[in-house]
Amino acid sequence: MTITRHLPRFGLRGLQRFNNVSGYTVLMVLSALFMIPLYWMFSTALKSPQQTFAIPPEWVPAPAQWDNFAKVFDEVPFGRFYLNTFFLVFANIAGHLVSVTLVAYGFARLRFPGRNVLFLVMLSTLMIPYQVTLVPRFIMFSKLGMINSYWPLILPAFTGSPFLIFLVRQYMMSIPFDLDEAAYIDGASRFAVFWRIILPLARPALMLVVVFTFIDVWNDFLQPLIYLNDPDMFTVSLGLSFFQGARETNWNLLMAGSVLAMIPPLILFFFAQKQLIGGISVEGLKG
């Protein structure tokens, strides 16, 4: 409010306008910084090889090579990568939905000796970097003959993820316990209470599980890199990185591939923006 004192001629409305204009200016400059690389990716994706290496660069490629996107599918089995990644995403979502809800329910609504200790143990596993388990897990899966299969990328999902269990458990804690009591009096079993009462009420938290799992699995690079050797089994991220290695100079096609790789998470983001931002504030509560 000191500004009002220094600039009395503006008046309150003038000050408001001044604030708005400066606010929008900052917002615009920042959005340019964030968006220009994305624009560069998209415009390169529409260029011919000559246009790609033009100096000075063409900002709006004319003519736009829309068939670059089709070419990506011809040059590398991108359709296959897409299907593979979607399969992994859905398998992991299924695994998480089953395991995370069961475990979260156990921690949130049932009493048993050692519950708090076990819960603390679970939380502390979040603090241990996954690198320590990477090598022995690899050895375990290779001794089981599961290298170059999807099992190493799917099986762990069916044992839950500590972070998601924590999220869902916090949500389930907020559901009134009277509901369970009433159902037990009516003779419902524990599983019926879980299935008929808690799960439907925990739907917003389950949406978060779906969204987080989707993004994690879609973007994962290290695990597919370690476990998959057969190009027919590659995920989008892994395929893209091999595309880079094989054809270093085809930047237009590489950018077209990158655009294709970001479309599914982007679509998900637009549909789930509310849950994501809400979920992030839940995540923020942890501190």
């Binding site: 089953v98 395991s99 069961l102 475990v103 329910y105 156990g106 921690f107 049932l110 009493r111 048993f112 000796p113 519950r115 076990l118 143990v121 679970m122 596993t125 241990i128 320590v132 388990t133 022995p136 897990r137 375990m140 762990p156 069916f158 044992t159 839950g160 500590p162 269990i165 524990r190 879980f194």
Partner: peptide, 24 residues
């Protein structure tokens, strides 16, 4: 109730032993 509790959290316990404690 306690038995049911252990049963419900058993997926995580298995995961903890097989994919975390064992490998570590």
């Amino acid at each position: 109730e306690a038995l049911a509790g252990y049963l419900f959290i058993s997926p995580w316990i298995i995961g903890f032993l097989v994919f975390f404690l064992g490998p570590i």
